[in-house]
């Protein structure tokens, strides 16, 4: 794709100039980690968690939150705004075409996601003694599938939302329920029914699989399959539904 590197560089600059994007996409997961980690009760080993601390349970959930923030708010809002404002249409008249901009957006959001995840894992380990995931390959595979499935959700939202504002609204509508079933508000004590539903959402499955890799185990097949199914299904759906103008 001609023009992609330069487009990605410009998109990265625009990403960094957008205050909301920085707060929601980059700062929020780290700030939450620091806030939770600073509460002494969060750092006490609990017998009902098998000797783990709440902060240990939180680390994978915050990785999920980081992925969700970028894929459900920043990515769809940006793309829908570009279509709504005619930015994609304008590019369609140049030799590079609008597909390059879609590619650049994906690259920028992917790099941002990886950056936040690396920061989360690093800060959790250094500041709060949460040891990094021991099943490294399983962690990497889970992250790939999680990002793939969640970006799939974001792209479908971008495909169906007529405006950037609408995309943001739909994104929020997915964001909070997904975080709820993934256990953000009930770390280590999620009701069974909720956890059961969560297993079949990309975010819940992802957090579940990440948890295993932190504990040094290979993720169970179900969450991996769930995420892979979402990634492929939503990817195809987004490609079918996406309109350039």
């Amino acid at each position: 794709m001609r023009g992609l590197p330069k487009l990605a560089a410009v998109e990265a600059k625009l990403f960094l100039r957008e205050g909301t994007t920085l707060v929601v996409g980059l700062a929020l997961p780290i700030v939450l980690l620091v806030v939770f980690g600073s509460v002494p009760a969060m750092r006490q080993a609990l017998p009902e968690l098998g000797g783990s601390r709440i902060i240990d349970v939180y680390a994978p959930i915050l990785v999920g939150l980081a992925v969700a923030s970028l894929s459900l708010t920043v990515l769809p809002t940006g793309l829908a705004t570009y279509r709504d404002k005619g930015v994609l249409r304008r590019l369609a008249t140049t030799p590079v075409g609008p597909g390059s901009l879609l590619g650049a957006q994906l690259v920028v959001n992917l790099v941002a996601t990886l950056l936040v995840v690396a920061l989360l894992v690093g800060v959790a380990a250094i500041a709060f003694g949460v040891l990094p995931p021991r099943q490294v390959i399983g962690f990497a595979l889970t992250l790939v599938l999680l990002v793939g499935s969640m970006f799939g959700v974001g792209l479908v939202i971008a495909a169906v939302a007529p405006t950037g504002r609408a995309a943001n609204g739909i994104g929020m509508l997915c964001y909070f329920p997904m975080l709820f079933v993934a256990g953000l508000w009930t770390p280590g004590s999620t009701p069974d029914v909720v956890a059961r539903i969560g297993e079949f959402t990309p975010l819940g499955a992802g957090v579940d699989a990440l948890h295993s890799t932190w504990a040094g185990a290979w993720p169970a097949p179900l969450p991996l399959l769930v995420m892979a199914a979402y990634a492929v299904g939503l990817g195809v759906l987004a490609a079918r539904l996406f309109r350039w103008e």
Partner: peptide
């Protein structure tokens, strides 16, 4: 080889 100025085209606000 064709340069185009479109009706109602915009660029990203912060570009």
């Amino acid at each position: 080889k064709v340069g185009v100025q479109l009706q109602e085209t915009q660029l990203p606000d912060r570009m």
